[in-house]
Amino acid sequence: MTSQTAFTAPNKPLGGKAYGSIGHLPNSRLGPGDWHIHEGQAKILTERPRKGDRIIVTEKLDGACMAVANIDGEIVPLTRAGYRARHGRYEHLQLFEVFVMQRYAQFEALLKPGERLAGEWLALAHGTAYDTGHEFFEPFVPFDLFRGKDRVLRDEFKERVPAAGFLPAACVHDDDVMPIPVEAALARLGEYGRHGSTEPVEGIVYRCEREGRVDFLAKWVRPDKEDGKYLANLRGCAERWHWRPSDPVPSPIRTEGA
């Protein structure tokens, strides 16, 4: 079973969470504590954007949301809740610190003080298994860059993140005129997505940029998605690791997910 260490809450380096929650589109499968976005927002994303809206859709991967922050010049790996990765409850969260230290120079080159990069940590299979030999599999897949509390715009993200050697979550739609329905976005993504999933992809994430800022986000998760089906502590099954510290850390600069 996944090892769980004794946990006492230390300080959070950012003073709060490293990443928040995103609301769901209609007909998206909800988990505990999830909610649907307003119907009007859903129409903006999928049917009728406002003048000046830019709608972006990327693949939703299935792992643990983690982040890396530059805090006063120090590169700090963080759990989604905002604790240092080494203080995470589970081994796969703690191992994110090892991964980040192995790629310290890349994160240092990318992140300016006050910035943080959020992404999906795929080291341990959660509800979806991945083919680690796939051309575009990486154990950490970035999907958001922050400057302070604000999300960096898509153009800056897609310029800086791949240039630093990281492969972002695959983008299937980016348009400042046309929306895209969920079914059409999923068709573009393909049943198994772009990052080596060996079973139907978990879902997609919509993003609306407007007037020089990120206005709002929403996600769609397939109705039959089964959370945590590969997690030993939940299901009593054998762990399925996609990455361990003994594995080589890929570092080529690629643009498939940009």
Rank of each mutant, 00 (worst) to 15 (best):
M1E: 11
T5D: 13
T5W: 08
A6Q: 11
A9V: 10
N11R: 14
K12I: 04
A18F: 01
Y19E: 09
L25N: 02
P26C: 03
R29P: 03
I37W: 02
T46K: 04
T46F: 06
E47Y: 09
P49D: 01
G52C: 06
I56M: 09
I56P: 01
V57D: 02
L61K: 01
A64M: 10
M66F: 08
I71W: 02
G73Q: 08
V76C: 10
L78K: 05
R86E: 13
H87F: 14
H87C: 11
Y90P: 00
F96G: 00
F99N: 00
R103K: 14
F107K: 01
F107P: 00
G114A: 06
L117G: 05
T132Y: 05
G133T: 14
F136W: 15
F137T: 06
P139A: 04
F143P: 00
D144M: 03
R147H: 13
K149N: 15
R160A: 12
A169S: 15
C171A: 12
D176C: 08
V177H: 04
P181Y: 10
A185G: 13
Y192T: 11
G193T: 03
H195N: 07
S197N: 08
P200N: 07
V205D: 01
V205C: 03
R210L: 08
E211G: 10
V214Q: 07
F216N: 05
A218W: 00
K219E: 03
R222Y: 09
E226C: 07
Y230K: 09
L234V: 13
R235K: 15
C237A: 13
A238T: 13
R240L: 14
S246R: 14
P250D: 12
S251K: 13
G257E: 08
A258E: 13
